[in-house]
């Protein structure tokens, strides 16, 4: 990796006249990493880009919800992955308190919804339509749910409204909330052993796609106002009677002080934008090829110079 960083620095030094115009502070830019691979690798990619520009970078492991308080206080400089669904609420709360701001969207869109691994289709061939899913609800029953199927939702604090949707669409499902992403994977992993059909909450881009091929359940398409106006959507009397939007945002967030302290890096940050396939590739390097995140980031940078060199020049 060291050799590569040197090469990188040398490469960038060629563009020096342009990048050195802005004077960045020599204090380290603190980048938070969380516990899922795409975010870790992406953060290292960005960190290595900053390093190649002559900045000092440090990484700190934090909780993905608690991080916004730290960005606000300036302890952490930026956040590379703000998911609309999972972290929108924490992000907005911190935004209101002040101290951080929106540093632009990635090209990537996020989708979070009911999902099943491919083997589930054998037991319920009508999928991915939600009506078909409801027809074979009994296939998803567990010891505790009786005749009804079980849908494993994300942690309660992600506010996915699974329960409301089940009621609004009159589905024969019981909603159980997992406590963490790891709990979701454990449940899918256990189901994989005997190819038991399961339907769980999942999202994309995500490492799980590479490990367990699967599909999202197709619910009535999202219409604006589905979460506010009962009249919208197939059930005229209920909220949340649609699927989630299939194109949620993936943002970057920055500490308010970053702009003045590291103007060069800040400028690059606002230009950075990754796409879904790029993010999936980063995750794959770690999850499937078992590289360490730093190596994966270096490898990705080496393989995709045309993607990122535009941002730094």
């Amino acid at each position: 990796m060291n050799k590569f960083t040197t090469a990188l620095t040398a490469g960038v030094l060629a563009f020096a006249p342009m990048t050195l115009l802005a004077e960045d502070s020599s204090d380290p830019i603190v980048i938070p990493v969380h516990n899922w691979s795409s975010q870790i690798v992406m953060s290292h990619v960005v960190g290595q880009i900053f390093e190649s520009m002559g900045n000092n970078v440090e990484f700190v492991t934090t909780d993905s919800q608690a991080v916004y308080e730290s960005v606000r206080l300036g302890d952490v400089t930026l956040e590379m992955e703000v998911w609309e669904g999972a972290f929108g609420a924490s992000f907005r709360a911190a935004l209101e308190k002040g101290g951080l701001h929106d540093a632009g969207d990635h090209d990537a869109v996020t989708r979070e919804d009911w999902w099943y691994p491919m083997w589930t289709k054998d037991a319920c061939p009508g999928l991915p339509s939600w009506e078909a899913l409801n027809e074979c609800a009994a296939v998803f029953a567990t010891a505790e749910t009786g005749d009804k199927g079980r849908y494993l939702d994300g942690p309660v604090d992600w506010l996915k409204h699974g329960q409301e949707r089940v009621e609004a669409l009159g589905m024969d499902f019981v909603v159980v909330n997992a406590g963490s992403a790891a709990a979701l994977w454990a449940e899918i992993g256990a189901a994989e052993a005997d190819k038991r059909p399961v339907v769980v909450f999942n999202w994309t881009p995500n490492f799980a796609e590479a490990v367990w091929p699967g599909e999202f359940v197709e619910f009535p398409e999202w219409v604006d106002g589905c979460d506010k106006d009962p009249a919208v959507g197939p059930n005229p009397d209920a909220l949340y009677d649609c699927g989630n939007p299939a194109d949620g945002y993936l943002k970057k967030a920055a500490w308010d002080g970053m702009k003045d302290k590291w103007p060069g890096a800040y400028d690059v940050l606002t230009k950075i934008s990754f796409t879904n396939p790029q993010i999936a590739e980063m995750a794959r390097l770690v999850d499937v090829e078992e590289l360490e995140p730093e190596e994966a980031a270096a490898e990705w940078l080496e393989a995709n110079p045309d993607v990122w060199q535009g941002w730094t020049s």
């Binding site: 990493v33 516990n35 899922w36 691979s37 790891a182 454990a186 770690v286 999850d287």
Partner: peptide, 16 residues
Amino acid sequence: GMPGLGAKLLAMMGSF
């Protein structure tokens, strides 16, 4: 933000 074994463990568990 404690680095090291714990952080790695959480990351490993997050990707099963």
